[in-house]
Design a protein around this nucleic acid. Structure first.
Lengths: 205, 205
DNA sequence: TAGATTGTTAATCGATTAACAATC
DNA sequence: TAGATTGTTAATCGATTAACAATC
């Protein structure tokens, strides 16, 4: 069943979720697909269709209950579960990501940091010690890490991905500008800043 | 004509380009759509179709000339032109992005940095002085900035986007976790790390 | 009740891919 | 020449949207 829901739908869920959390925070009780769409730039039909893959969360003539929908989307995304994340590559970008400990708003948080630079190994980031990348497989396995974030330089990204795969990680967020080669049961999301920037150049006049 | 080429195609061009630059660097002279596809995980047909929107760059029975194709794609993306970029928000993430001065490999480079924190204004990053965000419109206009990168906290992203629009910027790379509201002749690419991470949670077992 | 809004079906739109003639 | 590979057409696949009955 999961296989039948498209990636595009899954990627919109966190976008809906963020808006709903904001609305909840502002005390809104109800929201319509129209309102969601207006704020996010989607068609209301798309919002309803996306949500309908997972259940009937709305009420005809009324709309969606904000609090309930927040909870449902979190459940769909498994954000109600504990999801330990590891970060590999503690350079500037890695540090910026670690700072975004916003993840902690969910049960998702960086629980281990790896780097291969001897000068960094053993240092602390908050309560986390920076481990050598060599120990990634062993440590990530032991800690039950579920998601890996790659912020190493391009030339080491593939070997890090290999280690993550070996550690049983099935979901990778990749900041390195390379196409990673992984088994097809492993999901990779590329956040490729340079490629995006270069593609934007096309649109300048 | 430009309008008819889909965004998906445009976003693949820099991916092709990166591989081709690598191959060029390694001294490859020819490459086939099959090889490109294999390395990047695309179907060869897609590679050929994408390229064919812009011209006949290949040779039947032979493939593509690497050096020529690099140049052609750069031309398509306007990377042969000078493209000044500004960065707004000089926190950890902004600094990490500035460090990626990899852009400079193209004629694309960060030519201005803005921040609203008084402690940062006036400081230097390499040859660039950090300007107050209040001066964005004036300065960006004067400098002919073509692309804006937003690395400010969520709550200021929209106002920064508004300033960019006012400065005549038509392409924005947005790292803030918000849906920006801009006129429809302005292109926004969202690099939304938290949303991507949350969407990956769906796939853990 | 009348107005609003859902969930879902069917239609549309757009993007990917298979197939193949052209040709190096 | 025979094998390889392009550029392009047509077919397929998938995602978005319009329309609407159901119902609060």
């Amino acid at each position: 069943m999961k296989e039948s829901i498209s990636n595009a739908v899954i990627r919109r869920l966190p976008i809906y979720l963020r808006l709903l959390e904001l609305k909840k925070h502002h005390g809104f009780e109800k929201i319509s697909s129209q309102m969601i769409g207006d704020e996010l730039g989607f068609k209301p039909t798309q919002v309803r269709k996306d949500l309908s893959y997972f259940g009937d969360f709305g009420q005809k003539g009324v709309g969606y209950n904000v609090v309930l929908l927040v909870d449902e989307i979190k459940k769909i995304l498994k954000l109600d579960k504990n999801i330990p994340v590891c970060l590999v590559g503690y350079g500037r970008l890695g540090q910026a990501i670690a700072d975004y400990n916003l993840f902690l708003q969910d049960n998702m948080g960086i629980k281990a940091i790896f780097d291969s630079n001897k000068g960094k190994i053993g240092k602390k980031y908050k309560e986390l010690t920076i481990h050598p990348t060599d120990e990634l497989v062993k440590t990530a396995k032991k800690m039950g890490i579920k998601i890996g974030v790659i912020t190493v330089p391009q030339e080491h990204a593939q070997e890090v991905a290999d280690k993550m795969v070996k550690a049983g990680i099935k979901a990778i967020l990749n900041f390195a500008p390379v196409s990673l080669n992984v088994p097809k049961d492993v999901r990779v999301r590329d956040l490729d800043c340079i490629a995006e920037l270069r593609s934007l150049a096309y649109f300048i006049e």
